[in-house]
Design a binder for these strands. Structure first.
Lengths: 352, 352
DNA sequence: CCTTTTTATGGTAGCGCTACCATATTTTCC
DNA sequence: GGAAAATATGGTAGCGCTACCATAAAAAGG
């Protein structure tokens, strides 16, 4: 029910017309006997307010239960305490870990997180970036370095620190934390070659730019050893899954029955390959060697355990936040590109 | 009082002092030759503005590339276009799928998503809820029904639609979408009993409230069949993982070497149990039957494939959003509690 | 026809906060 | 000891938008 249906009756105290009655900075200022700005300063830059007033103000804040309104703050200062995070998938364990690192690093800062899911689509990424840029975020963290020209321009003109993650490269928009997928793919393949496998297949799903680079690394290693053959490569645009791994191994074997090793695009695929080997009674590592990518927990638990390229996803998230926070604080890091590397973890699936 | 500038320096056009030069609603209004409010209305409630003006305004908007500032909007209207989403884990596939459903359902709405990770902690949840409530979110979606009293009060007084997800029950804060973990646990266990297993273990990690209810369902089924024995239950507060599944099966076998069936808290554990069986040369399903929970993709691909309780995580996310949107639109659904159920998927791991 | 109601539009006044500048007060320096 | 510089505090004026009310014009009633 509303105050006045007809003629605006008497003045009816317009106090907190819409605000929901929460205490405002003015209430705190009044109670503490100081100016509103001083309260604002005491909260944001305590060093610039005298010990005395600071205590008074803190008392008033506590008593009233005052908490600053983030929207008003954002409007007045033209900047928000929001990190925009853009990833291609929410269910892919790899990005989930990066995001977890980001969350954990931000959990006791005043910053909030707004997440976007690009579904591996450049267009979707552009759209989300447009939306995010409007918020004047404190920082943007985006996966990958293969932005469309428009996306790249949006990032460059966002007016906030930008961290690209999950890759490495010479030309970041601003900052970059990750590792070389090419090197990862090459290292994995070289390992298979070293151990004695020869007809080594590449099996990959959803060939996003990172997968492409792993494939390029595989190819480089195979060519260097004089072993490359296009019929060894099996890919699909479908989303990666364990089931798909099984199917792809069947396809690969159909094309090339004699293959004796598999470098898998990722661990889900690798697990599917392993299961298919079980089902087809193919001995691992004797008949076929398997290497995965990312080293999810299950690779270690599998039977036989599976060799995989361990990547530091959680740490990537943490470093990205650390760099962004430093940049916000005005300290651009001397190192704009951080390569966190990877490690090949040798396990039973290639132990022969 | 201090109107005069003392040294009246030149007027220095205070235009867009902080705004970064983006066009504002006033710019659009000027260009279209209408009042600012009319622009605002044309954008939010086109029906209330005449066809004519609407076209003019749209033209001005397009020409200037105007996009409303969400912060100003939030401040003026005391409401944001943000969905707050609170989940206990970002890496747990189960919640990742719920979140994906939420994202997908919201992707072409004006609503943004702000996510929080409670790390399975009630305190953390309280803290995040406090923060979220300050934003005056458009809706809140939280996992579970076991909020602390404070959290529950925060939800009740949030002044927006609230959807609890992943469970079912008689007394939601506002709305509730999920299924019965108790029934899921019981059904899984009953299946094992029916097929002929007798010494059926329960193996579970991180016993959150949902796991507890699954355990209760297991217990109910076992007791009904006169088969319950405390030594059959193996749990740990550790976070769930495939590796942990292996270890827990070893523990369970140590306590009860004769066990012939396992109901696993979730699929990660189930996979670990399966691998441990392989490693210990225990025949599945002959010697031991295995049932998992959630029916992740890998259960179907595993060898042998693993019986599991399929839950509808993605759909839960979608329904939660649908209900919240309806409530925002003023149509509280007649059904405040939606039980999306589950299905037991019979597979090789219990086929005997 | 002249009211009463509806429809369309606009003006004003904030939402709660901070940037910018001004003023007072203290400290530093030669 | 007086001027200059540093420190502490506050007033004013918005940030860009929408709620509320007023007004004008058109439609509906009798």
């Amino acid at each position: 029910m509303f105050l006045s249906r007809k003629k605006g009756r008497a003045v009816t105290r317009p106090r907190s017309r819409r605000g929901g009655g929460r205490p405002t900075i003015a209430d705190v200022a009044r109670k503490a006997g100081v100016g509103a700005i001083t309260v604002s300063r005491a909260l944001r830059e305590p060093g610039r307010v005298s010990e005395d007033l600071r205590r008074q103000i803190q008392a008033a804040v506590d008593e009233l239960g005052y908490v600053p309104d983030p929207n008003a703050r954002a409007l007045a200062s033209a900047r928000t305490e929001v990190f925009g995070v853009l990833v291609p998938s929410l269910t892919n364990n790899v990005f989930a870990e990066v995001v977890r690192g980001i969350y954990d690093s931000l959990s006791d800062s005043p910053f909030r997180i707004q997440m976007g899911n690009t579904h591996y689509s450049g267009l979707e990424e552009e759209r989300l970036l447009q939306v995010f840029a409007l918020q004047r975020p404190a920082a943007l963290i985006v996966a990958g370095i293969d932005q469309t020209p428009l996306s790249r321009k949006l990032l460059e003109t966002a007016g906030c620190p930008v961290v690209q993650v999950m890759e490495t490269g010479p030309d970041p928009v601003d900052m970059l934390v990750g590792f070389s997928h090419f090197d990862g793919g090459r290292t994995a393949t070289e390992h298979l070659i070293e151990v004695g496998y020869r007809r080594i297949a590449f099996i990959g799903a959803r060939m996003d730019p990172r997968s492409q680079r792993r494939l390029a690394g595989y190819r480089a290693a195979m060519e260097a050893a004089g072993l490359f053959d296009l019929r060894l490569v099996t890919t699909t645009p479908l989303l990666s899954s364990v089931t798909l791994g099984r199917e792809l191994l069947r396809d690969a074997l159909a094309k090339m029955p004699a293959l004796d090793g598999v470098f898998c695009n990722n661990d889900d695929i690798a697990l599917g390959v392993l299961f298919e080997c079980h089902r087809a009674a193919i001995a691992v590592p004797k008949t076929i060697g398997i290497v995965g990518f990312n080293d999810l927990d299950m690779m270690q638990a599998a039977f036989p355990s599976v060799t995989s390229v361990r990547t530091h996803r959680y740490e990537i998230g943490r470093r990205a936040v650390a760099m962004a926070l430093a940049a916000i604080a005005g300290q651009r890091p001397q190192q704009r590109v951080v390569d966190l590397g990877f490690e090949l973890i040798h396990r039973e699936s290639t132990a022969r």
